[in-house]
């Protein structure tokens, strides 16, 4: 009787882990999707007074800032798109196998880790370029652009934070999976 009770508890704990796993995967899917969309549609046009010839008065020209102009931002969009599609695929796989297939869960842990590395490197690249855009770099005469394109910069920052939260979710997924493995040991 006592052992039976124990077993029920073990089963409950296992299913709660699976439930957390599903919730975290769904969260990762949502966060990376939002990050990819927010950065993907990021575009701002402003009229900037440019002095083309020093003797003439400055001319007002419309200047557009787009995501596609900066390679680091394109990398973040692509990385988030990959992580998002992977989250969807893994959700389908888990629901299809009901989490009982051990090989599938091992492959999912391994791919989760790859997603952590991919997302973190993209966040690093975007963050570094974004800081240069925000503060400029006086040593190499790279001027800041965020005083002009304020909305564009805010959107980049939001996308970076969303993506960061998504990668933390993937990290938590790994912790959860390893905890489950560790408890079985």
């Amino acid at each position: 009787m006592e052992t039976e009770y124990k077993n029920v508890e073990v089963v409950n704990r296992k299913s709660s882990f699976k439930c957390k796993d599903l919730v975290l995967r769904f969260l990762a899917l949502a966060l990376t999707l939002v990050a990819a969309v927010v950065l993907g549609v990021d575009k701002q046009t402003k009229t900037v007074a440019l002095t083309l010839v020093p003797s003439l008065p400055p001319v007002d020209l419309p200047v557009t800032a787009k995501t596609a102009q900066m390679s680091a931002f394109v990398y973040l969009v692509i990385a988030n798109a990959i992580a998002c599609s992977y989250a969807a695929t893994s959700l389908v796989l888990i629901l299809a196998t009901r989490g009982a297939n051990k090989l599938v869960s091992l492959i999912l842990i391994i791919l989760d880790l790859v997603m952590v590395a991919l997302l973190f490197s993209a966040i690093g690249a975007t963050g570094a370029v974004g800081i240069i855009g925000y503060q400029g770099n006086s040593h190499v005469q790279w001027d800041k652009v965020c005083n002009v394109f304020d909305k564009f910069c805010h959107q980049v920052a939001i996308a970076t934070f969303m993506s960061f939260a998504g990668s933390i979710t993937y990290l938590l997924l790994i912790v959860l999976a390893v905890l489950t493995l560790h408890k079985k040991c």
Binding site: A72, Y75, S121, G124, T126, V129, W142
Partner: peptide
């Protein structure tokens, strides 16, 4: 796993700036 994230972010940051 934590350090993997930190080193990957550092590599991405330095790579992004070096590319510019």
């Amino acid at each position: 796993a934590l350090l993997l994230g930190i080193v990957a972010a550092a590599t991405g940051a330095a790579g992004g700036v070096a590319y510019i």
